[in-house]
Each structure stands twice: as structure tokens, then as C-alpha cells.
Design a protein around this nucleic acid. Structure first.
Lengths: 137, 137
DNA sequence: CCACAGGGTGACGCATAGGTCAACTTGTTT
DNA sequence: AAACAAGTTGACCTATGCGTCACCCTGTGG
């Protein structure tokens, strides 16, 4: 009872266009099976696509995301493979740690701006929003 | 004694090309002064450029980075301005928090892969690297 | 005076990440 | 049979983010 999906179903479920999904396949990020000519996706494909989308949210290119996905697929039983894997994984980890530093710093600065704006409004009698819920929706 | 820089100096200092810097100016991310026709950058320009580069490392487009920079420039003395600023800053903060969740999750997964690779190597007698220092440099 | 370095402005080129047709096949419905 | 929905491929289009000329100006040293 492995559930299967069509491109359209999967696209809608993940909030992307079918075109994008097909494009990712062309780029080698996913390899859905086929029923005749029709693409058939299972849960593993869906999981991979989720990883792709997360990679995109983190700002990586499709090529980088592909390398990232390859890390999961690498054969760990071959010493040479495992060694390369280890090196690459560590490189990736360091990149992401740099990104996290950037992120934290940016967040800190934005929170400072937020407080300043709140303070400015308070001084002028405009009641400041206490909740973090979007005030501009 | 405000030190000034040329495009080339600044480019080299920040590890980008002069072309990129000029491009950022065209896109409105920076507004260096001019001595005649020659661009002249001061420390504020340099600071802005650093913010631009950090934004890029976080995967934002130049347009997004521009909006981000505008947050710092917004006039906080006008209630309407401060209100909009607050809304936008909060939106940005939420985006970045999402990004951080993605980042942490990805890091956790990569660390798991790292441990697996280490374990596989240990089992095969290959001495695993204990340090996190680059093994592949 | 002449060369040369350093800076400037176009203008074109290129890769990435898809959007947007167009034209066809296939399965289903009526 | 005819129409329709859902797929497919292929070709072309578009916006970003620069790289790469080509060509021009200008100040300085020899």
C-alpha cells in the first residue's frame, strides 16, 4: 500500500509547480519511476523533494542541492567512498555553521530595529503591538 | 581622517570584483560618493557592502537585500513609517527564524551522516579523524 | 609628448531556475 | 466516435547576477 502520486498531485501537495518538479528530474535531483511514460512518485521521491525545497529555502542552487542529496546516497561500505563522504559532509557542515552565524547576527540586528521602532511608536502614543503576530496582514 | 577607498581597493578588501560592486550600485544597494566621475567609498559604504555580502551568503536576492537595507534607513520619527517598519521587520524576522529551523535540521542530519561515515570507517580499521579540522585540505 | 595605470560607461554574453506555449499521446466519459 | 482531462516532450522566453570586452577619459612619470 505504498501510496503513489502524479506530478500534479505532488506539486500541489508541496506547493510547487509540476514544471519545477520535471525540471528537478532533468537536473537529476529526483528519479521517479514511470508507468509507461507517466511519472510515478512514491514517498521516497516526496521526501527527496522536501529536501530539495528545504535546500532552496536555505538559498542553495540546484547543483549544490544535488551534491547534498548525493551525500545521503553515498555507499558507506567502501572505505574510499566513506572517506570522501566524510570530507564532503564536514565541508558542508562548516558552510552551514557559517550561515548560522550570519543568520543569528542578522536576527539580532533586526530585533534591535524592531525594538527601536517599538520605542519610537510608544513615544508618540501609538500603541505598540506586544504580540509577534503579523501586524501587517 | 575618514579613510576612503576606490572600487578596486574595496573590492579586493572584501573579496569581490569591482564589477560586482558597480552592479550593486546600479541596483541601488549602495550609493558611494563621487570625486568627479570616480566612485569614492567610505566606511559606511563598506559596512553596507558587508551587509550585502552577508545577505548573499544567506541566499537572498539583491532585491531582497535592498529591502533589508531599507529597513535600516527608514525614518523612525514618523508614526506611519515606524509602523510599516515594524511590520516589515517582523515579517523578515519570521522568515529568518524559519530559515534557522531549516538550517538546524539540515545540520542535525549532516552530523548523523558524519557519524555514520565515521562508524563505517572505524569498522574497517581506517583511523577516523577525531578533529573537526578540515581533513580534505 | 607619450605611455600607462586606474577609473568610467555601455553592450553583449552566459548560467540558473523555471514559465509559457504548442503539439501529441492516452485513458476516460458521454 | 467525440470530447476531455492529465500526461509527455520540445522550444522558446524571462529575470538574476554578474563576466567580459570595447572604448573613452584623466592624472602621473619618464
Amino acid at each position: 500500500m505504498t501510496e503513489l502520486f502524479s506530478v500534479n498531485q505532488l506539486a500541489e501537495a508541496l506547493g510547487v509547480t509540476p514544471r519545477a518538479i520535471r525540471f528537478y528530474e532533468v537536473k537529476g535531483l529526483i528519479q521517479p519511476r514511470r508507468a509507461g511514460t507517466t511519472r510515478v512518485f512514491d514517498r521516497r521521491d516526496r521526501a527527496r523533494l522536501l529536501l530539495v525545497l528545504r535546500g532552496k529555502r536555505l538559498g542553495f542552487s540546484l547543483a549544490e542541492i544535488r551534491e547534498f542529496l548525493d551525500l545521503y546516497d553515498t555507499d558507506r561500505t567502501q572505505v574510499s567512498q566513506a572517506t570522501m563522504l566524510l570530507g564532503r559532509v564536514r565541508t558542508r557542515i562548516e558552510e552551514l555553521e557559517q550561515q548560522r552565524r550570519d543568520l543569528d547576527q542578522t536576527l539580532a540586528e533586526l530585533r534591535a530595529v524592531e525594538r527601536e521602532a517599538q520605542g519610537a511608536l510608544r513615544q508618540r502614543g501609538a500603541l505598540p503591538e506586544t504580540t509577534t503576530k503579523n501586524a501587517a496582514d
